[in-house]
Write a protein that binds this DNA or RNA. Structure first.
Length: 99
DNA sequence: CTAATGACCATTA
DNA sequence: ATAATGGCCATTA
């Protein structure tokens, strides 16, 4: 079941351009619910659409946060798009603070 | 209706 | 630097 809230989240995440990432809080702001950052994570956790690039959503501090299919996959996908990762943190210059 | 969960964030120690 | 705590919100049982 896809709730309207999840629709908004997925729609916002789809707008993230290739080779760029954004944060959970930025997505929360984009859907006009800045306080629902935690719920955004829930929505992405259950994301049923492969068309939604949920691997481009990371934490506010630059760490990757979680990933439903393992953090290794997330790292791979990010590297595939040319995003530089240093240690467990992502290069801040790739992070979009607003979508 | 209530209670528990979680891919978060800020604050505190 | 890490660890613990509290708050926030949507979803699910």
């Amino acid at each position: 079941m896809v709730t309207p809230f999840q629709q908004n989240v997925y729609n916002a995440v789809k707008k993230i351009p290739m080779g760029r990432v954004t944060t959970y809080s930025a997505v929360a702001r984009a859907i006009k619910k800045p306080q629902a950052v935690r719920a955004v994570g829930q929505a992405l956790n259950k994301n049923p659409f492969s068309s939604v690039p949920c691997h481009r959503v990371i934490r506010f501090d630059g760490s990757m946060g979680g990933f439903a299919r393992g953090s290794k996959t997330k790292l791979k996908l990010l590297a595939q798009e040319g995003i530089k990762v240093r240690g467990s943190n992502i290069d801040p210059s790739f992070i979009l603070k607003s979508i």
